[in-house]
Computed example of a mutant assay.
Amino acid sequence: MKGDLGDARRLWDSVPSGIAHALRPGIAKVSDEVIEEIQTRIPEYARPSDEIYIKVVRLAVEEAIGRFLDRIEDPDAPWDPEPFRMIGRGEAAEGRNLEPLQTAMRLGARVGWRRLTEIAGPLGLSPQSLYDLGEAIFVYLDQLADAAAEGFDEARAHAAGEMERRRHRLLDLLLSQPPAAAEAISDLAKAAGWRLPRTVAGVALDDQNGTPSLPPDILVGLERPQPCLLVPDPNGPGQPQMLDKGLRGWRAAIGPAVPLERAATSLRWATEALELARRGVLPGGRGPLRCSDHMATLIVFKDEELVGALAASRLAPLAHLRPSQQDRLAETLLAWLRYGRGAGEVAARLHVHPQTVRYRLRQLEELYGEQLGDPDIRFELEIVLRARQAAREGARPS
């Protein structure tokens, strides 16, 4: 940019300042030619019935030409890029990229150069002065384009920041307890450009550096005390694979799919699952953990004090045994409850000899007596034994 300004200053110094005075009366005519060329060749600017828009375009063209002549008259005049930054911001507000504006600038420069060549003789411009003036036009064009790009980028960044703030507020509303009013959520979702889904799933994340690589329809709350995501329609086509890929390298737990108004519940389940994964109770290997695959364990560990009290009661017959004996009998009893009462099936699951299983089962019958015939007690035993197994696996060194 500095090099361009230096080149422009050298070129402007080489052009007689009186030329600007001679050219000013023709600004309106040249502006007409530029505007006609732009509206003919660039569909985005062809709005013949929009008088206000045409007026704005004319002001922009005349401002560009007038400032160019100002620089010829006074090369030391300070360069103020703000009007052209405003043009760039306007392009961003219109939802366009910079290509139409850059094309319009090039067309305007060509019209200006063509007009100069037509009047070079009457103005007494030498070939060198005409060449320098033409080169100055295109250096000046670069300055305008740079200023417009700055305004465009600034507006886009502001718009993106505002959209991000709306999405963060939307996430807060969706996760609030009690749930926010449906109308408030709908209005904010519309302002944030977020389509209301039928179902959502909360995703709890471990705090890590960086941002998951995910589609823009996923609401991201990495700055929250518990970093999280909210995924629309998590069971839709391709969604599970997308989450697996996007959350690669993250420890994450995905809550169950729920209606939108129960988003906080899904995230709460995901948060509880993530904590169990940290403890090793639930698997925390590669890929996100899905609550739907571990609902029984989540239910069991929902109130560990209550499960502990139940365990103290139902496992009391084993309490007087050595820890190793307790472990063997608890393992056998759980397999017996889960896989049937045949010694062969239990032995296959535990990878021990059937005779060993029969021996352990006789011990259990002596310890529990008629309790093993009660369906309710068997159900409670399976609950506490599953919890005991999960807790012990989580306590093992990784």
Rank of each mutant, 00 (worst) to 15 (best):
G221Q: 14
W336C: 02
R314H: 15
L188I: 03
R110F: 06
L306S: 04
S31P: 00
M1I: 00
A387D: 06
R314N: 06
E91H: 15
A8L: 15
A253M: 09
P237T: 14
P288S: 14
R251T: 07
M86D: 12
A312M: 00
L141Q: 07
A184M: 08
A387P: 05
D76Y: 10
L260P: 11
S313W: 10
Q226A: 14
G18A: 04
D142G: 13
L141D: 11
A64E: 07
A64R: 05
A309C: 04
G308T: 02
W79F: 15
F68W: 06
W250K: 03
K55P: 00
G90M: 10
L333Q: 07
L125V: 08
Q102Y: 14
R165M: 14
V139W: 02
A64G: 13
V200H: 05
A184Q: 15
R278H: 11
E154F: 14
H353F: 07
Y45I: 08
E82M: 03
G108Q: 01
W79K: 03
A257V: 04
L333R: 12
S14T: 02
D327H: 13
P81A: 10
A257L: 01
L175T: 09
D376N: 12
M295L: 13
L315H: 03
E275R: 09
V57K: 00
A348C: 00
E272F: 13
I52L: 06
A343M: 05
P256Y: 02
K190T: 14
Q363P: 04
L361R: 01
G88L: 03
F301A: 04
G373I: 01
V57S: 08
A181Y: 00
I72W: 03
A252E: 08
E380R: 05
K55Q: 13
R115H: 10
G202N: 09
K245L: 13
M295I: 06
P237L: 14
I218L: 13
Q239E: 09
T199P: 11
L23A: 01
L247T: 02
A22Y: 01
A390K: 07
L372H: 15
V203T: 03
A20M: 02
D293N: 12
P83E: 04
L329Y: 01
Q128N: 02
P127N: 10
Q239C: 05
G6N: 09
T332S: 10
E44Y: 12
R279T: 04
G369A: 05
P78F: 12
V203F: 08
R167C: 05
A335S: 15
V220L: 14
Y368V: 00
R114T: 14
Q355G: 11
A182P: 06
P48A: 04
H351W: 02
A191I: 01
L175Y: 05
H294P: 01
D327V: 07
L321W: 03
